Amino acid sequence: MGYLNNIVGYRDDLLASRSIVRHGNYAILTPDGLVKNIVPGFEKCDVTILSTPKIGASFVDYLVTLHQNGGNLQGIGGEGIETFLYVIEGKVTAQVAGESFHLTQGGYLYATPDEPMTFINNQPADSKAFLYKRRYKPAGNLAPHIVSGNAGQLERIHYEGMDDVTLVDFLPKDPAFDFNMHILTFEPGASHGYIETHVQEHGAYILSGQGMYNLDNNWVPVKKDDYIFMGAYALQAGYGVGRGEPFSYIYSKDCNRDVEL
């Protein structure tokens, strides 16, 4: 086990952290202090486990750095577990059901719950990926299908009519899918139109910029490479701050299902 930011040994100042964990409610995880985990199936990879059921999530998020020839050829998902892979930087070749997908920065792949996903870094330099898995919730005879593409080719939707806030949807608006993945981007000074309160959960990895995020009515500064978990009914909203660079993050949202009793 090592540390994600590769900083070890004594510090020159008091130990401190911007991270906050409120189990079942919300969490901010910063790179400082996060660890690299040894996970069977992942070879030549640095794997950091982010949200899990232990923090109150119904899903698992990973941040994976793939070194040369690194990846997971054993397979992740299948047997009722759906997966989603997003390439933050680099080049990754993934396979599902015998089909290969060559993913560059912004590339993504959704694998259905009956098919495991494998992937490998196909360049000498490191690649970096955001990985999600969740137990699929069936709805009658509906069945999702494999989806792949690149975020750069997807429609930018003006979020709730705001010119300086855009949304990208990765998966179809189809009730066969029980979650979606999005990228939400705020220009500096832009914000949500209101503080949200809803049953859906989010796991969000910040791709660029800086923001102020309201979590359970606590305003918290966040920036690129931070991770946010938002549990059911956690109050939430964000502002883009800083200079020049948009505040942008990729995040999951469970959807298209009634509440189970």
Rank of each mutant, 00 (worst) to 15 (best):
D178G: 07
S100Q: 10
Y86F: 14
A139P: 05
E79S: 13
Y136M: 02
Y233P: 13
L73S: 09
N256D: 07
D46L: 01
N150E: 08
K224I: 10
S17L: 05
Q153F: 11
F84S: 02
G231Y: 13
R257L: 11
F42M: 02
V259N: 11
I38A: 10
K173E: 05
E260W: 07
P221C: 05
G90K: 06
G56W: 12
V92S: 03
G152T: 01
V35K: 14
I28L: 13
S100L: 09
N25F: 12
Y110I: 01
E115D: 09
L184I: 09
V259C: 15
H145F: 14
L34V: 02
G161E: 04
K44E: 11
Q200M: 10
Y239C: 09
L167E: 10
G211C: 10
A97Y: 02
H23N: 13
Y110H: 12
F179A: 08
K253P: 01
G107Y: 00
F179P: 00
D216H: 08
D254E: 14
A57F: 10
W219I: 06
S248E: 00
L34F: 06
G209P: 10
P246H: 04
S17M: 03
D169R: 11
T48G: 07
A190V: 01
I228G: 11
E260Y: 07
R156N: 12
G209S: 12
G80W: 08
Y132G: 03
V147G: 07
N217L: 13
L184D: 00
F170P: 00
T30S: 10
Q123Y: 09
A143S: 14
L4H: 06
G78T: 03
N5S: 09
T83C: 07
Y108G: 08
A190N: 02
T166A: 01
L171V: 00
G24M: 06
I183R: 00
Y251D: 02
I120F: 10
D13K: 15
P188D: 06
Y26E: 04
I120C: 09
V165H: 00
Y249F: 13
N214Y: 11
R11A: 06
D178W: 01
P246T: 05
K54A: 15
S208P: 09
P175D: 02
M1D: 08
D225L: 03
D61K: 09
G209D: 05
P138W: 13
M1V: 11
E115A: 12
Y3F: 12
P40C: 06
F179H: 09
H198S: 12
G75Y: 14
P221V: 06
A97L: 07
N25K: 08
V35A: 12
L131N: 02
D12V: 08
E115Y: 10
E79D: 13
N121M: 06
I250E: 00
V87E: 01
G71P: 03
N180Q: 00
G161N: 03
V87K: 00
L15D: 04
S148P: 02
N122Q: 15
A176V: 04
V241I: 14
T30W: 05
Q200F: 12
M230L: 13
S252D: 14
D126T: 13
T197S: 11
Y136D: 07
P221Q: 12
Y194F: 15
R22H: 11
Y159W: 11
